[in-house]
Design a protein around this nucleic acid. Structure first.
Lengths: 131, 131
DNA sequence: CGGGATCCATTAGGATACTG
DNA sequence: CAGTATCCTAATGGATCCCG
């Protein structure tokens, strides 16, 4: 913040991939969320349809209850997923992507595809330089 | 790796967004790298051309020397960026995306665009549920 | 200029046990 | 089933000083 003197001199020469300096702060905020250990995977799991708590837990496999709960809660607070609790016994809670979340889904899918496609290459590089 | 017993029973019913269980491990590995605090931003900075160490440092702004160095080193080891040191005085080192890195660039750009586009919406959701 | 080395605080995140 | 609560460790990341 408080970057400019007069409006004339604000447009710096491509400061960062065309991102204005002021945007950097919240890009970082979003990226912090996106980039935590489980968020992307949870979104990936919900990508092809609503899932119950336990389903998500099983799909991801090694996530702890605690982290799953926290991740789901944050995604819900950000409005990326919906939470629907059915008053049954035993209780049933379904999580699903919201329209907002769907936008992220495509990107996440692209990211995962990329990771899958280039994993071998990356690992080869990693091992070569580790020698 | 070494997950299956016999090849017959491997194909589980849509385990996770179409990702086979075995892939989850390295998807997680890639995502761990991608999703750390600075990697995406560094890639974003390098997206529109080679940059020197100090340039990257200034563009991102609040990253510490230590984290910038570590992030650049990891990206280099993974083969996502190149490192070119010119034998001058004072020394000059330029970092640039490799072809492999360019693939990620498009996704990163999409992610950042998405973050910028929906930041207001997300923050509104966040504040509403924080009441 | 472009880092490396060290020390330290914070935090993320796992394990376990318990609950409506 | 779908969480909460507590404890505790490992990892992240910042600050500082130093070096070629």
């Amino acid at each position: 913040m408080t970057v400019d003197g007069n409006a004339e001199s604000r447009r710096l020469p491509t400061p960062c991939a065309g991102i204005p300096i002021e945007q950097m702060q919240f890009v970082r905020q979003i990226l912090d969320r996106i980039g935590d250990k489980w968020t992307l995977l949870v979104i990936a799991v919900l990508a092809d349809g609503p899932r119950r708590y336990t389903d998500v837990h099983n799909d991801i496999g090694i996530i702890s209850q605690r982290m799953l709960t926290l991740t789901l809660r944050q995604l819900h607070q950000d409005g990326l997923i919906s939470r629907t609790a059915y008053a049954e016994v035993p209780p049933r809670v379904e999580y699903a992507l919201t329209p907002l979340g769907h936008g992220l889904r495509d990107i996440v899918t692209a990211l995962i595809d990329w990771a899958a496609d280039h994993y071998d290459e990356i690992r080869a590089n990693r091992e070569r330089t580790a020698t």
